[in-house]
Every structure is written in C-alpha cells, then in structure tokens.
Design a protein around this nucleic acid. Structure first.
Length: 260
DNA sequence: AAGACTGTTACCTA
DNA sequence: ATAGGTAACAGTCT
C-alpha cells in the first residue's frame, strides 16, 4: 500500500471511518514494528481518540485528542481496516477497539511497516529526515533540489530526504512520461527536463490517486500495467526492458527514454 | 517451485 | 569520508 497516493487513500479512509471515537482497548502484535515500547502505545492510546490526520510522504500521522500523534509507515504491504465483525486479521499488529464496538487494525503481513509516537509533526519530519511532500512542492523548489545533486535521477527521486512520497513504481512512471532514462545523471538534467519531471510527477500522483478513489484501473497508457520484460511499450514503439537501479527492479522503454 | 514484490537500512566495497 | 551497490527483513503470489 505504500507510495504517496496509496497513503493518501489510507488517510481518506481514516478520515471517513475512524475519527472521534474513544479507544477502549489496545492490542499490540509483533514487537519489531513498534518504535517505542508497546506499553507506551497502550498508555498513550487508551481512552484517547483520533481527531485529524496528516500525511508526510509515505507516513500517515493520526492526531490524538490529548496531544501528539500515532504515526504509521506502511512498509510494502501495510493497510488499515475499520470493521465491526469479530475476527481480527492474522497479520494485524495493532488493533484498537472503539467504544462503539468497531475495531481498527493496522495489518502488515511482511512486517516492514513501522509505528511511532511523536509529539510534533515538525520534530517527526526532522527525525526521519524527510524532504518536501511530493504533492506540496512548487516547481521552483523542485528545480532547486537538483542543484548539485549527484547520482542517478531514479536514486535521487526515491530518496525520501530529497523528496518525500515517491517510490519504485511511480518514479519509473514519471520518468517514462518524461522520456528520461532512469540511469541519467541528476546533474546532467536541464531546466526543461526537470520541469517535465515535475509536471509528470504531479500528474502521475494525481491520476493514480483518482483511479484508486474512483475504483478505475490505472490508464493503459501508463507504464504501470506493463511492468514485464519484453512487453510492448504503451506508446507502441519499443519493448519494455528491466534493469536494476539503486537495487530495485526498474522498467523502462529504451525507445522512449533517453539517457542524459 | 524459484523468484519477484509498492520500502528501508545495515553493511560491504571502491 | 563518502558514495554506490547488495543483502536482509518476511509473507504471498505466480
């Protein structure tokens, strides 16, 4: 569930289901997900309630009525569930019971997710060394990020301290729409190319979020449904190739994407 | 049935 | 010292 648009969807889900209900029970699962002692979570959350939500990159912050936040990072497979039946998912690692008998679970099969407690959004942002949230940043600011930036453009865009919220899928996607090869050096990109990445980043994040909320599939013109070696490029020219960049499987079209 | 997977980070090598 | 690459985490799916 993990890049910016999916977390935005989880945020919307919490806003529409889980605010303003008193927590009367706290059940914790695998210890490794908890970044403070589980006892602290129990003490903090019990008799409390969520009042609002905030997102920074891939992190979702749930504001608590009596101060502070519960922060969720979804790892590769995390998601939230608000439900009224009895069975709790076997991969639920934090389950809250509200005073209306509804329950709230953080489900995380691969246990790559993380749970934090923090008192301040800004303090948390600094602790995690998070760059600007990808959908908030303006074009000028985005341009400025690339001043003196080294390494491949894909590695840069995946770096959460550089810009927060992009991951493997949507970096590939925005580079595809921008016609830029993922191994291009960040310092070689000119203003026009950076501007193109900016526009495509916004557009991709927006389109993916809307697909998700409206229940539509990702557009066929996107790289996302074609992440297979040898598949025809949706633009109709080349065949999709797979390489490793920054340790991650990277799909691109050698005909459409030029190395800079 | 081996290998891939939307993320992060510790650890290695140059 | 620093940057870049790799393995590891752990479960599910193909």
């Amino acid at each position: 569930m993990p890049e910016l648009p999916e977390v935005a969807y989880q945020k919307m889900y919490v806003d529409s289901t889980s605010l303003h209900q008193k927590i009367i029970k706290v059940d914790c699962g695998a210890k490794k997900l908890f970044q403070s002692p589980q006892k602290d979570f129990e003490v903090k959350l019990l008799k409390n309630e969520f009042t609002a939500t905030k997102q920074i990159g891939k992190y979702l912050l749930l504001e608590l009525k009596n101060s502070g936040y519960l922060v969720i990072h979804f790892g590769m497979t995390g998601k939230l569930d608000y439900f009224k039946h009895d069975e709790v998912d076997k991969h639920a690692h934090l389950t809250l019971t509200f005073d209306n008998d509804a329950k709230f679970s953080f489900i995380c099969p691969r246990k790559f997710g993380k749970l934090f407690l923090t008192e301040s959004v800004e303090a948390f942002r600094e602790q995690q060394d998070l760059g600007p949230h990808a959908t908030d940043i303006g074009e000028k600011e985005f341009q400025k990020l690339f001043d003196g930036k080294k390494g491949s453009v894909k590695t840069a865009l995946m770096d959460q301290s550089f810009i927060a919220g992009l991951g493997n899928l949507y970096v590939d996607e925005l580079l595809f729409h921008s016609g830029i090869h993922p191994k291009s050096k960040a310092e070689k990109l000119n203003d026009k190319e950076i501007s193109s990445m900016y526009k495509n980043m916004k557009n991709v994040l927006d389109t993916v979020f809307k697909s998700k909320t409206e229940g539509n599939p990702i557009p066929k013109t996107y790289l996302r449904p074609h992440r297979t070696e040898g598949e025809n490029c949706p633009n109709g020219k080349g065949k999709i190739e797979m390489i490793k960049v920054g340790g991650r499987s990277t799909y691109f079209c050698p005909e459409c994407q030029e190395i800079k």
